Simulated assay, not measured.
Amino acid sequence: MTNEELNTQLYQKMFYEQEQFREWLLGQPPEEILNHCYTYTVREDILLALETNDLSDRQCQALLKSHTPLEDVFREFEHRESDYMENVFDAMCSRADEVIRREKHKEAAR
């Protein structure tokens, strides 16, 4: 099996896993859906990462051994530190600074 075929097989397995999770989620009450939206979104991002990147043959084979590779990767990700909140705050500061610049520009044009 080629590397492309292995990556496709893994993607399809994970996609199916996400579809099952989605179907279960849609059958839940709204409050429960909200409780799981982070999980759903990160799992979608994992699929997107696999869609745009290739794993090695050995990596694909290792993940394909699992009944739930998507859940496994999600759990691994969940335990990692990230700079996500720093990026959120940076975006907030950048947006505020842009508004301030525009206001200064408008005042100077008067």
Rank of each mutant, 00 (worst) to 15 (best):
M1C: 05
W24A: 11
L26P: 00
T52F: 13
D90P: 00
D90C: 06
E86C: 01
E44T: 07
R110A: 09
E103F: 06
Q28D: 05
Y84E: 11
H105R: 06
N87T: 06
E32G: 00
A62S: 14
L25R: 10
I33L: 11
T68A: 10
N7S: 09
L64V: 04
Q61M: 13
E23I: 04
R22M: 05
D97L: 07
L10D: 14
G27I: 01
N3M: 03
Y40G: 07
R75M: 08
Q18C: 01
N53G: 02
D45R: 08
R102K: 12
N53L: 05
L25T: 06
C93F: 15
E5H: 04
L47I: 02
N87W: 04
L25G: 04
E17F: 01
L70T: 07
K65D: 12
R75C: 01
E4Y: 09
N87L: 14
Q12I: 02
E17Q: 05
D45Y: 03
D72L: 15
F89K: 14
S56G: 08
R75T: 09
E44Y: 02
V88E: 13
F89I: 15
L34T: 09
Y38K: 15
F89L: 14
E107F: 06
Y11C: 01
T8N: 12
D57H: 11
D83E: 08
L64D: 07
C93W: 11
E76R: 08
M92Q: 10
R110Q: 14
Y40C: 05
D90A: 14
R43I: 03
T68F: 09
N3L: 12
R58E: 15
